[in-house]
Design a protein around this nucleic acid. Structure first.
Lengths: 134, 134
DNA sequence: CGGTATCCCTGCAGATACTG
DNA sequence: CAGTATCTGCAGGGATACCG
């Protein structure tokens, strides 16, 4: 078997390119990693601190997935204790545009979604009443 | 306890609006449901057939999540057997823009990602070799 | 320093039977 | 017709100890 990992999920996901991409950027830490690496190069430990909250294992998995998709470049410097640098590729830079558009939309309409949720939850709280529940 | 469901995940997700949105559109069937409802109104069973592959329970959950976020409007017609219609809200229509941009990017750069994966997987297959592995 | 190996736990998703 | 109830499975994520 492959010596890498048993948890390889992304094998036959290419049914729809959109779903495929969403599986990537939808995974919990991917976007934060991309943001952390926007315009700069970081080493593993720096990344670990920059993303903050992510566990080692998961961070590694996230980085590997991004690297595998050609969005991330991993450079190993054979120094005394090994040094590894991570940087986004031009491909990832191109993704930045659509991603930012989505982020902007999210921020702009955040209030709408929050209030919609409130309304929905409130409606769910009163099954079949029109007057004051209390 | 709330009579709706025990599996309410989306309670305190508002740390980051982007993550929040990605949790929504990142869930497996959301985008397909949005696509299915683009510009038209469908009933539950129609939706079930349009999305194809989704199970009842999951479809309902997807619809509820979208409705809760104000992206979907659910209309119940008190006919003999009850009739329910689903339609996107203007809010969802606005989301269509950024989402399409992302989809376009995904389609455009699909080949890049696929070849990147091939290269990555090929490299992983030969741990420390330069010649022919066979 | 930059990972891997190992273990656990939760939640999403799938399938299906049942119901107002 | 449009769901809910129930059970199951499994991948994603988390924590941490260990290693070259």
């Amino acid at each position: 078997m492959s010596p890498r990992d048993t948890e390889v999920t992304d094998q036959v996901t290419d049914v729809c390119p959109v779903r495929d991409l969403l599986d990537r950027i939808g995974s919990k830490w991917t976007v934060q990693v991309i943001e952390a690496l926007a315009g700069r190069t970081l080493r593993f430990t720096e990344l670990e601190r920059a993303v903050d909250g992510v566990s080692r294992r998961v961070l590694v998995r996230t980085l590997r997935a991004l690297e595998r998709d050609g969005l991330l470049r991993r450079t190993v410097h054979p120094t005394v204790p090994v040094t590894v640098e991570y940087a986004l590729t031009p491909l990832a830079a191109g993704l930045g545009g659509p991603l930012t558009a989505l982020a902007d939309w999210a921020r702009t309409h955040r209030a709408d979604m929050v209030s919609a949720r409130r309304a929905y939850d409130a409606a769910a709280a009163r099954p079949a009443l029109s007057g004051d529940p209390a």
